[in-house]
Simulated assay, not measured.
Amino acid sequence: MRILVTNDDGINAPGIALLEEIARQFSDDVWVVAPADNQTGAGHSLTLSTPVRLRKHDERRWSVTGTPTDAVTMGLKVVLDSPPDLILSGINAGANLGDDITYSGTVSAAMEGALAGIRSIALSQVMHAEAPRSGDRFEAARAWGARAITPLLGLPFAPRTLVSVNFPALEPDAIQGIRVARQGFHDYSRGSVVEKRDPRGFRYYWFGLDAVEHTRGHDSDLEAIEDGFVSVTPLQLELTHHASLDALRERYRG
């Protein structure tokens, strides 16, 4: 089995090094193609206005001066001589739950794989802001990563679908298990924009990372994480709201 590993935190991020270790539990044909720099929040963006450069670090490790989508595209069309059987994206340093997936470069890299018809899985490690920077901040993913991936390997994925996995910020022994959950909902209307001034007096702005309200259902990914489970969420690229089609057709009927 050939595996392509990528991420959005950059080629030198500790999460991708761990994911490469986990991938090697399943195959000795593992390739890494990732952004050269941190691309957190890049979403499913594609570089079109500047050239993309490719750097070879060793025989099977490459970096790309672009987005996670660029990295997957370069991996599939330039680096690899045949398509991989599996794409693993991550392990992201932070959660990708609820509506966060729309911003996530980690999930978007897996989306690009799904568009190419390749089984793709995004993996993210929930981290608390107050957690110490020292020590193994990925210990939950390290212990549970292979266990979360294994059941997905023999499962046929529907076309244009992918799976997002999130590990709770807990010690491995405290994790309750793995729960399949739907995507939850964050209320980002409460977020803030913080205005500051630079030394020359010009204004600049930070998007505030305030705690956000969220609604939870019995089976949401948000609740699964809060209950101490690894969450596994199937996602689809088809965004049509089918329930609205008939009402809109009636509106435009002349």
Results as ranks from 00 to 15, higher is better:
250 E>M: 13
115 L>N: 03
138 F>V: 03
112 E>Q: 12
163 V>T: 15
130 E>N: 13
143 A>Q: 04
127 M>F: 01
152 L>I: 07
113 G>C: 13
62 W>R: 13
180 V>A: 10
59 E>S: 08
163 V>S: 14
14 P>H: 02
133 R>V: 04
157 F>I: 04
74 M>N: 08
199 P>C: 07
244 S>Y: 02
190 R>L: 11
243 A>R: 11
220 S>I: 06
146 A>M: 06
27 S>M: 07
60 R>A: 05
222 L>A: 07
117 G>I: 13
59 E>H: 08
11 I>M: 08
182 R>M: 13
193 V>E: 02
182 R>K: 15
18 L>I: 05
120 S>C: 12
80 L>M: 07
54 L>W: 02
152 L>D: 02
198 D>M: 04
172 P>H: 08
104 S>I: 06
81 D>R: 14
250 E>W: 08
180 V>S: 11
188 Y>A: 05
239 L>T: 06
34 A>G: 05
166 N>D: 15
29 D>G: 01
79 V>S: 09
180 V>C: 05
187 D>Y: 12
141 A>L: 06
62 W>G: 09
130 E>V: 00
154 G>Y: 12
170 L>I: 11
18 L>Q: 05
66 G>F: 12
37 D>V: 03
4 L>W: 02
153 L>F: 04
40 T>I: 10
223 E>C: 03
56 K>W: 00
76 L>N: 07
185 F>Y: 12
55 R>S: 04
12 N>E: 12
148 A>R: 05
178 I>G: 10
113 G>L: 06
149 I>A: 14
142 R>L: 11
87 I>C: 05
135 G>V: 13
53 R>L: 01
26 F>G: 01
105 G>L: 15
59 E>M: 07
51 P>Y: 05
49 S>T: 12
108 S>E: 05
158 A>K: 15
10 G>Q: 06
161 T>Q: 12
231 S>Y: 01
188 Y>V: 00
